[in-house]
Design a protein around this nucleic acid. Structure first.
Length: 352
DNA sequence: CAAGCGTGGAT
DNA sequence: TATCCAAGCTT
């Protein structure tokens, strides 16, 4: 085994973070736990996942239990975590494992890779961590550590194949799981994107970037394009019996399969209702506006509410499209609103 | 294969 | 306020 790898594993043995989805020393990790945590952690901070992982495990202790759950419940449980395609794929994947694979996750990267929501990184991570399969798991941490260790100056994503090859040369076949997690912990604690703590790094003597004074600027990558500003309107249509009109968004696109307060315009799509406002009703403006930033644009959402709640008999006459539904206000917390809609709902409730 | 896809925290 | 970043995947 390479000396660098030995140093890394020794450091990990002493400094590994204790995380809810990690097995205790000597115990076998549960592939279901590893899989769920890896999906949650895609582009999401450890701090955020820490708060949500246990909720899922408690509610659905096994992949079979998760497969039995209605999609709507899984989406609601995922609300606030973002990148909602992950939740749809999580559910699809659970059903596939439960119904086509006998409830057992595959153990090779190739087989894992065929499951929904599992790409190259996640396949490698599950195989290495849960099944001790000799695979590398190239996430942004691993890429950053390796790029610095070998002073790879070619920018991402072009250098990805080279980084993978270099990582593979360090991979200890007897401890692929610890190697993967060691790279991630080192990247998260020491070899951080900004202000790396090179003075504390167990690999400082081996690091080519440090020797060349390049650590902070590697890996190189293109700048993100600026985010445009968009605007939209959301409508609070409540009923005298304490229900509010909501709708489930289509599966494809922004906030796919999530519940929203009827709104229009902000994603560039035409409104789902005819006329300027839903059902040509009259509305009062509610202040302030909601401001929210998505992956690729800033949103300013103007809020409108009815002057008075609709009488139930009159509300029944509204021609609701499929996907629209009256929801009890006291259960608003459990319906699973995405964050932008949670912000809007809060302002509506405070205004009424 | 470049673009689309959430959110919260740090700077 | 603006920008970047965080255990990426899909089309």
């Amino acid at each position: 085994m390479k000396r660098t790898t030995e140093k890394l594993l020794k450091w990990y043995a002493e400094h590994a973070r204790a995380l809810p989805w990690r097995a205790r020393p000597g115990e076998r990790p549960d592939p279901y736990h590893v899989w769920l945590s890896e999906i949650m952690l895609q582009q999401t901070t450890v701090a955020t996942v820490r708060k949500r992982f246990d909720d899922f495990i408690r509610r659905w202790p096994t992949v079979r239990a998760l497969a039995e759950a209605p999609l709507e419940e899984v989406m609601a449980a995922w609300a606030g975590l973002g990148y909602y395609a992950r939740a749809r794929n999580l559910h699809k994947c659970a059903r596939k494992v439960a119904h086509e694979l006998g409830g057992e996750f595959p153990s090779t990267p190739e087989a894992l890779r065929r499951l929904p929501g599992i790409g190259d990184y996640t396949a490698g991570a599950i195989a290495a961590i849960a099944f001790h399969h000799p695979a590398v798991a190239m996430d942004t941490n691993a890429e950053r550590v390796i790029a610095r260790l070998f002073a790879v100056t070619e920018p991402l994503p072009g250098c990805k194949p080279r980084l993978r090859t270099l990582a593979h040369e360090l991979l200890p076949r007897h401890a692929p799981g610890n190697f993967a997690q060691a790279l991630m912990d080192l990247g998260a604690i020491i070899c951080t994107a900004r202000n790396p703590a090179c003075g504390l790094c167990p690999l400082m003597d081996d690091c080519a970037a440090r020797k060349q004074g390049l650590a902070e600027e590697l890996p190189r990558k293109q700048k993100n394009p600026p985010k445009p500003h968009r605007e939209g309107k959301a409508f609070w249509i409540d009923r005298a019996d304490g229900r509010v009109l909501l709708r489930r968004r289509p599966e494809r696109g922004m906030l796919g399969s999530m519940v929203e307060i009827p709104s229009t315009g902000w994603d560039g799509a035409p409104p789902a209702f005819a006329g300027r406002t839903p059902f040509r009703l009259e509305f009062d403006r509610v202040r302030p506006d909601v401001r929210h930033t998505f992956t690729h644009f800033h949103l300013k959402l103007a809020l409108y509410r009815l002057p008075e709640p609709l009488e139930v008999e009159r509300a029944r006459l509204l021609p609701l499209s499929p996907g629209w539904f009256w929801h009890p206000l006291e259960k608003l917390d459990t319906v699973g609103l995405p964050t932008v809609m949670k912000k809007a709902a809060r302002l509506f409730l405070e205004s009424g």
